[in-house]
Design a protein around this nucleic acid. Structure first.
Lengths: 151, 151
DNA sequence: TACAAATTTTGTAATTACAAATGAAAATAG
DNA sequence: CTATTTTCATTTGTAATTACAAAATTTGTA
């Protein structure tokens, strides 16, 4: 469905405006499907992203700055996100001995197990959307997006 | 900058996962720039979108359902969004005489003036991002996004 | 009338935004 | 070399927003 139909616009829209709307709308569709999966695991998208970042550290602890800079949405309140994950026993948090300003966050066994359980569902979700596109088209889409946001 | 560098991933990412991340991240970049513009006008993106929807009605009032279905992010609380716009005098709200369950929302002169003032700034923002892409590439990006989200 | 559907509002808990505050380390001045 | 200032890293306060479900109101219908 074209973006014009979705927002039910009857006047013509410039290609630039159309692109912004398309990006916003598409992200929304993907994020909502994402949310749907995570909801049954009582995780928000941001909490899930933090867990993934921590798993990517492969045992090496991450401090708050590192987590923040790797998040997709930089605006989230990392402290309180980690608080929530702590309460659920999905991460550990301790003061860094070398620099006591920093926190060392690691993912727990429970956190890793949760991610392992989620992995196939997330992967299916990711593949579902690309389904109508050939690998070349997907590659093309990625390149265009990258180029698009580079100002 | 490639999405792998942004999230500082050292392990390979599937093209499907890469696409999801790219869409999420790009939307975030665009939305933040958007927000930056609207902030000085004391408007949130959603409030702005509601105003645009109302302007698109060309005088014809819109009820809450209509507004909701045309919004990019369907999840917002339309009642309270409109409340805020009412407080600022940017919209009018009255009960529909034909069906008293419905509300008739219209944009005020003040709302139209605000949009008129914003228009060139928003347009510049939209054009800024597409700048590195030819019109054909933009067209292509739109088509790919549309195809991508169609499941 | 009584019941179901449509439309909007409200309650309230969780999350986000943004600025200010805290605490620790590093740099600088006397 | 100690006191002071600046910078870094994180947390906290609080107001605004969002999420989600329940409630309220009006309409249509058996």
């Amino acid at each position: 469905m074209k973006i014009e139909e979705i927002i039910k616009s009857n006047s013509p829209i410039s290609i630039e405006k159309r692109t912004v709307l398309n990006i916003m709308f598409t992200q929304n569709v993907v994020a909502e499907a994402f949310n749907e999966i995570l909801k049954s695991f009582d995780l928000s998208v941001e909490q899930f992203n933090v867990l993934r970042i921590l798993r990517g550290q492969k045992g090496k602890p991450a401090n708050m700055c590192v987590i923040q800079e790797r998040m997709i949405a930089k605006t989230s309140n990392t402290t309180r996100l980690v608080d929530k994950l702590l309460l659920k026993g999905l991460v550990n948090r301790e003061v860094c001995e070398q620099n006591r300003r920093k926190m060392e966050i690691t993912i727990t066994e429970k956190g890793l197990n949760l991610l392992a359980e989620l992995d196939p569902k997330i992967e299916a979700h990711e593949k579902l959307f690309g389904y109508n596109l050939t690998p070349e088209e997907l590659e093309n889409l990625n390149n265009l997006l990258e180029k698009y946001r580079t100002i």
